[in-house]
Computed example of a mutant assay.
Amino acid sequence: MQLLNKADIDKIFSMKEAVEAVKEAFALYSQGKAENPLRTNIYAKKYEGNLLFMPTYAEDAGYASLKIINIYPENMMKGIPTSFAQVILIDAKSGDIIAMLDGTYVTQLRTGAASGVCFDVLGRKDAKIGALIGTGGQAQTQLEAMLAVRDLDIVKVHDLSIERTEAFVKMMKERLNGYGTEIVAAASADEAVEEADLLITVTPSKKPVFDASKCKAGLTVSCVGAYQPDMQEMDPKILTRADKIFFDSKDAVLEESGDILIPMADGTITENDFTGEIGQVICGELTGREHDEEIIVFETVGIGMQDLVTAKTIYEKAIAAGIGTAWK
């Protein structure tokens, strides 16, 4: 079995490669070429944490995987990561467990890459202004994915804590300076989203974190954080303004995401308002953006196929390059 940590992965795998891997994952999923059960979620009520288990099998790829990921949002206040994870990669032809990858980093990569896919497939080609709401453990790769697929002039970042926002912006300016995009702290969500062409929300919020009336025509929104039915980052009014609404997995979103379940329950939207899955756009089954004035919403809760294809791509590159630690 090959052990691959974050440093190993960084040597051989880029965000642009992660975006391509996740495109493949979404396409396979929407074509029905994956066994991808809804994740098992055990709620650790005493600690306000969630223990998540995500198995996946893709016959065409020749691999299976299991991700264990534990999400504890209150860790942010303690100065420790909000999630811990491992991805186990399995050779489906023999059943051999062939690799264990740093699941926290794989999750960051593939979750960020989902927004990258959204913007690459659905975003305006001439997008120049980005907005990011949330600066937690998933925010770094979300920001990089946005920059990896669009040549942006500026990204405005907002978080409830201005100190946390400024620290994040300082760090990202150093890490992502090669993209040539100005990254600035926004004092309010309104300031962040006004004039934005691309918007990512990645928070554990249980109430909307932006005002839809401040969003301009042509906006593409990727909502990432609402992975539980009681979570709601998205202002539901953006759904009534949206020309198209896409998901990573319709089944998963309708099981898990308060961003969609809450406005469905109060009648703001119905299933008739949904366009489909982003994998269907990638496969050519559905049309994505048709003109620059469309507002397009993408809701993602994450699916195991993202982990599987990302992990197998990293593993194959690592074996070819002789990267990682063999454990027998």
Rank of each mutant, 00 (worst) to 15 (best):
Y72P: 11
P73R: 06
P73K: 04
E74H: 15
N75Q: 03
N75P: 14
N75I: 00
M77E: 15
K78G: 10
K78V: 02
P81M: 09
P81L: 07
T82P: 10
T82M: 07
A85R: 00
Q86V: 10
V87M: 07
V87C: 11
I88P: 09
I90D: 12
A92G: 03
A92T: 01
K93H: 14
K93A: 15
S94I: 12
S94D: 05
S94T: 14
G95S: 08
G95Q: 05
G95M: 09
D96W: 14
I98P: 00
I98H: 04
I98A: 07
A99K: 01
A99P: 13
A99D: 12
M100N: 06
L101Q: 01
D102F: 05
G103N: 03
G103D: 06
G103R: 07
V106D: 02
V106W: 02
T107Q: 05
T107R: 06
T107L: 02
Q108K: 15
Q108A: 13
L109Y: 11
L109I: 12
R110L: 09
R110H: 04
T111M: 11
G112I: 14
G112M: 02
G112P: 15
A114N: 08
S115Y: 08
S115V: 04
V117C: 00
V117S: 02
C118M: 10
D120M: 02
D120T: 01
L122V: 06
G123A: 01
R124P: 01
K125D: 14
K125F: 03
D126G: 05
A127L: 08
K128C: 07
G130T: 08
A131C: 04
L132Q: 04
L132G: 04
L132M: 09
L132T: 07
I133E: 08
I133W: 03
G137L: 12
Q138A: 08
Q138G: 06
Q138Y: 01
A139P: 13
A139D: 06
Q140K: 13
Q140L: 01
M146A: 13
M146G: 05
L147Y: 03
A148P: 14
A148V: 13
V149A: 14
V149H: 08
R150N: 11
D151T: 15
D151W: 11
L152H: 13
L152I: 13
L152F: 09
D153P: 08
I154R: 10
I154C: 11
